[in-house]
């Protein structure tokens, strides 16, 4: 689900960087009374997990697929999911060669915007649908929207620089999206299981920074790190 370098025309990837800059700046701005730095360890941890999980291939006959986890990131990180995905994609370029430096912005938009929507969907739906169902839908919608955006960007870019009939575009887009429905289900189930597990074992990981343990909300006192008698 990464667009490589050299495929998109310049306005597309420049636009992707512009969009990513705006959304990242918005995500990193300091909300009233909340320091986004406190969320950094969780965001970095999840980014690393996102990166590690991208190396997992699941058999989905006749092929194998890898997990995106953008819905899970939206559920766990809220607005910080976008910068976390940006960083995760950078490491995927730097380590695996998936995607590219020019297309980093548009790839972040393709995966990050659905993550934000999935997070919002989870928060709205958790009271009405229950945590498991809303997590399932967040995971499925996250990957479904990402697939839709990915192929839409690709088809618009290709048809803009060549000759591609609207019928062929429509057929390609709809068949590719339909082909990804099993992946949406897999990702939704996976997200649901992870969220239910975390809800049971460590619910503050699902708190989106609103109810972090009090100890983390307090400023760091340097003397508290010293052993007794050394202060």
């Amino acid at each position: 689900m990464h667009i490589s370098d050299g495929i998109l025309p310049v306005p597309f990837w420049l636009g992707g960087y512009g969009l990513t800059a705006v959304i990242t700046a918005h995500s990193l701005r300091r909300p009233e009374g909340r320091d986004p730095r406190r969320q950094l360890p969780k965001a970095a941890l999840l980014t690393a997990a996102f990166f590690v999980a991208s190396s997992i291939y699941l058999p989905l006959p006749p092929t194998s697929v890898h997990l995106l986890l953008n819905g899970l990131m939206g559920v766990m990180l809220g607005a910080l999911a976008y910068p976390a995905i940006l960083v995760g994609l950078f490491f995927q370029v730097a380590t695996f060669g998936h995607g590219g430096l020019t297309t980093l912005g548009i790839n972040a938009a393709i995966i990050g915007i659905p993550a934000l929507l999935a997070g919002a969907l989870f928060r709205v739906g958790r009271c009405r649908l229950g945590i498991g169902f809303s997590a399932f839908w967040a995971g499925a919608v996250g990957v479904g929207l990402a697939v839709l955006l990915f192929y839409a960007v690709l088809l618009v870019a290709l048809s803009g620089s060549g000759t591609l009939s609207p019928e062929a575009e429509h057929l390609a887009l709809s068949s590719l999206v339909v082909a990804h429905i099993p992946l949406m289900v897999v990702e939704g189930m996976f997200t649901g299981w992870v969220v239910l597990f975390l809800q049971r074992v460590q619910p503050e990981l699902l708190s989106d920074g609103e109810s972090l343990p009090q100890v983390l909300a307090e400023p760091v006192d340097p003397t508290s790190a010293l052993p007794p008698g050394r202060s």
Binding site: P41, A44, A49, I56, F190, V194, F197, L198
Partner: peptide
């Protein structure tokens, strides 16, 4: 796939839980 998914979900959840508190301390 049928057995991998729940297992991998538990695995990832365990990984997150194990690393979370440590990541806070490191930070």
């Amino acid at each position: 796939l049928r057995q991998d998914l729940p297992f991998l979900a538990t695995l990832l959840g365990t990984l997150l839980v194990r690393s979370y508190e440590r990541s806070e301390r490191v930070y």
